[in-house]
């Protein structure tokens, strides 16, 4: 249980760091023209892969 809570806290830190990273890197012409920067591209690919993995069952509990 403690390990689970620790993991959740860790993931929450990832959320915060991600949001700050976006706030810093997204300012500028790219954000205004709707283009993704490098960090956003990698995050998008990971997000899509994770959603597809969970949906199909490729990403399991182990």
């Amino acid at each position: 249980m403690i390990r689970f809570v620790m993991l959740l806290v860790l993931a929450a830190v990832v959320v915060t760091v991600g949001a700050i990273a976006v706030a810093v890197w997204s300012t500028g012409d790219n954000a205004r023209s709707g283009k993704l920067n490098g960090v956003q591209k990698v995050a998008y690919i990971c997000l899509f892969a994770m959603m597809t993995g969970v949906a199909t069952g490729w990403l399991g509990a182990e």
Binding site: A11, G18, A43, Y44, G60
Partner: peptide
């Protein structure tokens, strides 16, 4: 536990990708 972790990671990745 695993589903909750995937959920938090998913929210983080979405926030990072779209801001």
């Amino acid at each position: 536990a695993a589903a909750a972790l995937y959920g938090v990671i998913g929210a983080a990745l979405h926030m990072t990708a779209f801001g």
